[in-house]
């Protein structure tokens, strides 16, 4: 489904240029749960941002189901994120002083879903992450684990094909981390492809495939039985 070929990413130019990705070839199939690991500075976040169409590679090809993502305009990239992808971030990235419900409804506004339908779908997804009692709470009134569950609800409410997760458990304790990973695994089983960056082996265990990066190159790419 996802195919990267010869992806490089260079920041800056001339003498200060830093090449963060040095030629990544990667193929991810539909329904996979991929964990990207590596020490800091290995380029794993950059790779994830390119996969999430938040950033563009310097060189190489990125195609998604036969569509060349590199050839898309800014607005087309926005549409790609809007309709195909869902995002979960380490820092939750919820809208402040905005209820959990409104946070989850927000992506649907851009999809042009009617207010009634938005409300219904947001409530559904919030109860699927176990927050049916918290829909009117602001992020500030929720615990870290609850905030991340709101973020997951927001990511999957648009029924994305791929869930992009950047250290989703980075700010959580072990117990909450496992809860979150179980949620994500659950959605993966329902058919959503998951690409997750993490540095915790324990969390990477949930994935069906682990890709290890070092110095901007793929060091190891292996499937393992869950």
């Amino acid at each position: 489904m996802i195919k990267l070929a010869g992806i490089t990413k260079t920041y800056g130019s001339g003498e200060v240029a830093t090449q963060v990705l040095k030629g990544i070839d990667l193929q991810i199939e539909k329904g996979e749960f991929v964990a990207i690991m590596g020490p800091s500075g290995s380029g794993k976040s950059t790779l994830l941002n390119i996969l999430g169409a938040l950033d563009v590679p310097t060189e190489g090809d990125y195609s998604f189901m036969d569509t060349n993502i590199r050839g898309l305009s800014k607005d087309q990239l926005a549409l790609f994120r809007r309709n195909i992808l869902g995002f979960v971030f380490q820092g939750f990235n919820l809208l402040k002083k905005t209820s959990a419900l409104a946070n989850v409804e927000m992506p649907l506004i851009y999809q042009g879903v009617s207010a009634k339908e938005r409300h219904k779908r947001a409530l559904e997804v919030l109860s699927s992450v176990g927050l049916q009692e918290r829909v009117d709470y602001d992020p500030g009134q929720l615990s870290g684990g609850e905030q991340q569950r709101v973020a997951i609800a927001r990511a999957i409410v648009t029924r994305p094909k791929v869930l992009i997760a950047d250290e989703p458990t980075g700010n959580l304790d072990t117990k909450r981390s496992h809860e979150i990973m179980q949620l994500i695994t659950g959605f993966n089983r329902e058919g959503i492809t998951v690409v997750m960056v993490t540095h915790e082996e324990e969390m990477a265990e949930y994935a069906s495939r682990i890709i290890r990066l070092r110095d901007g190159m793929i060091e190891k790419d292996g499937h393992h039985a869950v």
């Binding site: 800014k74 549409l79 648009t158």
Partner: peptide
């Protein structure tokens, strides 16, 4: 700025 980033990530276009 952060809010703008979040909105763009979930698919807001520049025009939105």
């Amino acid at each position: 700025t952060r809010e703008i980033g979040i909105r763009m990530a979930v698919g807001a276009m520049a025009a939105d």
